[in-house]
Simulated scan of single mutants.
Amino acid sequence: MKNIVTKSILAAAFAMGMASAAHATQGVSDTEIVIGSNGDLSGIFAAFNVGAIKAAQQLFDEVNAKGGIHGRKIRLVVEDHGYQVPKAVQNFNKLINSDQVFAMILNLGTPHNLAGFPLMEAKQVANVSPLTAARQMLEGDISYKYTGFSSYYDQIRAAVSMLAEQNDAKEVCAMYIPSDFGLEVHEGAKDQAEKLGLTYAAETTHKPDEQDFVGSIQKLREAGCDIVATGLGVRQTIVAYGTAKKLGWTDVAFVGSSAGMNTAVAKVPEGVTEGYYAAAGWSDFENRLDNPEVKAWAEAYQAAHGEPVGTAAQLGYGAARAVVQALEAAGPDLTAESFRTGMESVKYHDAINDVDIDYGPDHQGGNLIVISKIEGGKWVEVGRLDESEVK
Rank of each mutant, 00 (worst) to 15 (best):
K2I: 15
I4F: 15
V5I: 15
T6Q: 14
I9Y: 11
A12N: 06
F14E: 13
G17M: 07
G17K: 03
H23F: 15
T31G: 07
V34S: 07
N38V: 05
A46H: 10
A46F: 04
K54F: 00
N64W: 05
G67E: 01
G68L: 01
H70P: 03
G71S: 01
G71D: 05
P86G: 08
Q90S: 15
Q90W: 07
I96S: 06
N97M: 00
S98A: 14
F102H: 07
L114Q: 14
L114Y: 00
P118H: 08
V125I: 11
V125K: 09
N127K: 02
S129M: 12
A133N: 09
L138Q: 06
G140A: 04
S151E: 06
Y153C: 06
V172W: 06
A174Y: 03
Y176V: 13
D191T: 14
L198A: 05
T199C: 02
Y200N: 07
E203S: 15
A229D: 01
L232R: 07
V239L: 13
K245A: 11
K246W: 00
M261T: 09
K267Q: 14
G281E: 11
E286N: 12
N291W: 06
H305E: 07
A319G: 02
Q325I: 09
F339G: 07
R340I: 01
S345T: 12
S345D: 13
V346Q: 02
Y348E: 12
D356C: 02
G360T: 04
S372G: 09
W379D: 06
K391F: 10
